[in-house]
């Protein structure tokens, strides 16, 4: 797919999200959450390129969300909190990354899971500070110094999430095409070969890992400022599983996948919950099974195949 088609597609997608949020007000919230998660999933996609599955990336999402929750009582400014929280998550990603990039496959996945579960326990243990599972309610934040109405704040967050998604989407696309991105794929096929060329597999993975933590941090910050309530459940292992779920649902082949997957995931969940309040989980599970068994390229892959067929017909 050519670059201009992709730009066009991205813009059409953004316009669709905005239109949907305008036509159906309650979906504006759902769309913002979906994009926030999409940002984190973009990081999962990056690691998937290296053949590594992190089952603990909710750690960075939750870390940034709590950073925003605590920071908001000091500087209640969205445009300060967001970058700070994201940088904090990236820094944490660097520290953790230095340790986990030495491991591959199941050990990589499980260490990530263990660390996110430790963070989950810490959030519960330091009850006096975090209020445990009750969570922290965020005070209202300003946007570029302006105090916005709830309605305007909702729109601001959606637009912010959209801009971040477009920006990071473009960045990751360029990154994957760059030597660093190509080297990631090298880790997946044969890491030893990479090292024969004088490239350190660990360093390549570390760069991607920190970048993924940064994006998860952005997602977490947006999530916190949208739901305006954070709880330790954000860091539970099922939340990490959800991110991987979305990555596969959307398709790992393109930077569109995470966002397509996140929107589809959130909509499915909302509609499943509305139709059968006590079996929504089963519906999500069945959807995932169908996608894996019949469209392993995810929704994006499915869409592409359809397009290709139409073109050839």
């Amino acid at each position: 797919m050519s670059r201009s088609t992709e730009i066009l597609l991205a813009l059409i997608g953004a316009a669709l999200v905005l239109a949907l949020a305008w036509a159906v007000p309650w979906l504006r919230f759902v769309m913002t959450i979906a994009l926030a998660k999409g940002l984190a999933v973009l990081g999962i996609l990056l690691l998937l390129r290296a053949g590594q599955v992190s089952f603990g990336h909710a750690l960075y999402l939750a870390f940034a969300a709590y950073a925003v929750a605590f920071g908001a009582s000091v500087v209640p400014e969205t445009l300060v909190l967001l970058p700070l929280a994201a940088l904090g998550a990236a820094l944490l990603g660097l520290v953790v990354g230095l340790f986990v990039v030495r491991y591959r496959e199941i050990f990589f996945g499980m260490l990530n899971l263990a660390l996110s579960m430790v963070f989950y326990s810490v959030l519960e243990k330091f009850y006096a500070i975090t209020h445990g599972t009750d969570g922290i309610r965020l005070p209202p934040t300003t946007f570029a110094g302006q105090t916005l109405s709830n309605e305007a704040q909702g729109w601001a967050m959606l637009v912010l999430a959209l801009l971040l998604s477009l920006g990071f989407g473009a960045l990751i696309r360029a990154y994957l095409a760059s030597p660093m991105g190509q080297a990631l794929a090298g880790i997946k096929t044969r890491e030893t070969r990479l090292e024969f060329m004088g490239i350190s597999g660990r360093r390549v993975l570390l760069a991607a890992y920190v970048l993924s933590a940064l994006m998860a941090g952005c997602g977490g910050a947006v999530l916190a400022m949208t739901t305006r309530h954070v709880t330790p459940a954000l860091a539970y292992w099922t939340a990490s599983g959800e991110l991987v779920f979305i990555a596969i649902l959307g398709g790992a082949g393109s930077v569109f996948g995470p966002f397509l997957g996140a929107v589809a995931y959130e909509l499915t969940r909302v509609y499943a919950a509305a139709l059968v309040a006590d079996a929504w989980q089963m519906i999500l599970g069945l959807v995932l099974l169908l996608v894996i068994l019949f469209a392993p390229g995810g929704l994006w892959g499915m869409g592409r195949a359809l397009l290709a067929r139409r073109r050839s017909a």
Partner: peptide
């Protein structure tokens, strides 16, 4: 109209909006 609290706060906040607005 019943909604499940099981999936957690971020989902519930969305459900609350859906209940009101939809």
């Amino acid at each position: 109209i019943f909604v499940d609290e099981g999936p957690g706060v971020d989902h519930f906040v969305g459900e609350y909006r859906r209940l009101v607005q939809s």
